[in-house]
Write a protein that binds this DNA or RNA. Structure first.
Length: 579
DNA sequence: GATTATAGCGCG
DNA sequence: AAAGCGCGCTATAATC
């Protein structure tokens, strides 16, 4: 049963009704020509195709369908309502527009409309929780026919070349949107006093606005002395570069790695200055003032914000929290964090993607890189790691290039898969993830450069630039299939974990006025890592749920293929203490 | 004076 | 050591 949120309110429709000819026909519906059986009712989905399948505690099997989770769900959460399942039509449209398996469907071929340009509402959009319960709070988007779009998307999935994976992808993406809204609602516990103490220990007390903290001023003075440049402002890159040149340092740029190759008394204080200045500008007192309220940091997640399907964030830099300030993330009294991250996620995903049984076998233990060493393919764990990362990213130099032939011989299926993705990209064609998310194709500039490189008046320079652009796009598509499929694994992990956390027996706690934040709940997600905030007593059950969810994610993507996804899990009171 | 571009570095 | 992929954010420079 779909609960479709239209501008007139919520309306319940069965999948069969959605697959039938729409009453207000503005032309033939693509769904009309489909046999009814091709549009599976939501209730008939095998649980393994649906990571947020209804659980024992869900009211029925309702799946909300709405234009934009960000626009609709936060107000439900404020009203104390938790939604079990959703179909986010904005996200669904983005995926189906570019999914190669749905290339010939109406959703993919129709001219652009308002759905294509619909920007997600900010999670922190509505300033007031004071909004009337059913005024949805934010300005209405342009006219959108929600029922029609849902019909078209369901029909597109059903008539696509691979309905099962695409259906899972849309369900997982939408579940991700629910998680993002819930994490924003609950917030990441953040102790401003601890953060302040960390900063003070590193740079001295908070200075007046615009002034440097004492430690930074000391380091700046040491830099000026070492370079004999008494008025140097080390924050000015051109000035710093000139001063380094004048002092005779052979550096091309002012970057840290280049400085570290030079032996000169200015290097230690300058590198330390840059480290602390960076921390202070990105996550100093200003950040604290702007982003932490009432003991919580509320990240603005952007689900599907990266082309590969990874999440992005806007504002606050939630996906770049430096390790040095993670000590300020402290659980509430009586509560703890369960911090879990997936070990070597991307190579494991590649093993599953390419059905490489040898690589899967190397990943049988907790450490895939050590497993590779144990096969005898390479001598050290470091070589295994650098070699695998090189294969995923398209590295062509150094150790990565050296060990590449040996790894390629040991794991031919995995290496052939990424090579194939690179070749496809170099031809300017799209690749796709395991569940069917399509990559963008290169723009007109890229194609023009390719064409001109073979023209009559092509110079050497034109040709080498074109070759470089070709290879760069190949590296992008090579990585896309792995990074994108890893993102899909992570979405399934999140969706499964979210359902399992809700199903945990919590005694009387869940009767509390805040249905989400008074029980174990997700508070942070970082590509292959999650944090659950939980009453300490329930931590062991949460650890079990996190592991079970990882196993389920592996099965959802790769069925019975024997690739495992081990986690490293710790239970801590401060994020900074996690391994 | 307001904008866009770049270098550099934080995260995976 | 970075490199080879994907991001966001800041301060400063460059440009309008």
């Amino acid at each position: 049963m779909y609960r479709v949120l239209t501008q007139d309110g919520a309306r319940d429709l069965t999948a069969a009704e959605l697959a039938a000819e729409p009453p207000s026909a503005t032309g033939p519906s693509p769904a009309a020509d489909l046999p009814a059986a091709t549009a599976l009712p939501a209730t008939a989905l095998h649980p393994l195709e649906d990571p947020d399948a209804p659980s024992a505690t869900d009211a029925g099997d309702v799946r909300w369908a709405w234009d934009d989770t960000n626009r609709r769900y936060p107000n439900l959460l404020r009203a104390g309502e938790r939604v079990a399942r959703a179909h986010d039509l904005r996200l669904g449209r983005m995926i189906l527009r570019h999914a190669p398996w749905a290339r010939s469907t109406e959703v993919a071929t129709a001219p652009p409309d308002n759905w294509d340009t619909l920007a997600p509402a900010p999670l922190t959009g509505v300033d007031a929780a004071e909004d009337a319960l059913f005024s949805w709070g934010q300005p209405e988007p342009p006219a959108l026919d929600v029922v029609r779009e849902l019909r078209q998307q369901l029909a597109a999935v059903a008539s696509s070349e691979r309905p099962g994976p695409l259906r899972l992808l849309l369900a997982a993406e939408s579940a991700g949107a629910l998680v993002a809204a819930e994490m924003h609602h609950a917030g990441l516990p953040w102790r401003a006093d601890v953060h302040d103490r960390i900063l003070t220990e590193m740079v001295g007390p908070r200075p007046a606005l615009g002034a440097r903290p004492v430690r930074l001023e000391e380091l700046a003075d040491q830099v000026r002395t070492a370079l004999d440049a008494p008025t140097l402002n080390p924050d000015s890159l051109p000035a710093l570069h000139r001063a380094l040149q004048n002092a005779g340092l052979p550096v091309r740029t002012t970057s840290k790695w280049e400085l570290l190759e030079v032996d000169h008394p200015v290097v230690p204080p300058l590198v330390e200055y840059k480290r602390l200045a960076r921390l202070l500008s990105a996550n100093g007192w200003g950040w604290l003032d702007a982003w932490v309220r009432d003991g919580r940091f509320r990240a603005e997640y952007v689900v599907g914000g990266v082309v590969t399907g990874r999440w992005a964030t806007s504002g606050g830099g939630a996906l770049q929290l430096p390790k040095s300030v993670r000590g300020a993330v402290v659980a509430d009294p009586g509560w703890v964090f369960v911090v879990a991250d997936a070990a070597q996620l991307e190579p494991r995903v590649l093993a599953g993607l390419s059905q490489d049984v040898r690589m899967a076998a190397a990943g049988r233990g907790a450490d895939l890189y050590q497993g590779i060493v144990d096969t005898g393919a390479v001598a050290t764990r470091e070589h295994a790691k650098i070699g695998m990362l090189g294969a995923l990213y398209g590295g062509t130099t150094g150790v990565s290039a050296q060990v590449r032939p040996r790894l390629a011989a040991a794991f031919p299926d995995a290496f052939a898969h990424v090579e194939q993705a690179a070749r496809t990209g170099e031809r300017g064609e799209a690749v796709h993830t395991h569940l069917g998310r399509g990559s963008p194709v290169p723009g007109t500039d890229w194609r023009a450069a390719q064409g001109e490189a073979f023209g009559d008046e092509a110079t050497q320079d034109d040709q080498s630039k074109a070759r470089a652009a070709t290879r760069a796009w190949g590296r992008f598509t090579r990585n896309f299939v792995v990074q994108g499929t890893a993102a899909e694994w992570a979405l399934c992990w999140l969706a499964s974990l979210r359902r399992r956390l809700w199903d945990l027996p919590t005694g009387d706690r869940c009767a509390a006025p805040e249905p989400l934040a008074d029980r174990p709940h997700l508070v942070f997600f970082l590509h292959d890592e999650v944090i659950v905030h939980t009453p300490a007593m329930l931590a062991p059950a949460v650890v079990e749920a996190v592991r079970a969810a990882a196993a389920e994610a592996g099965t959802l993507l790769f069925g019975s293929f024997p690739i495992s996804f081990p986690l490293s899990v710790t239970t801590v009171t401060a994020y900074g203490d996690a391994a």
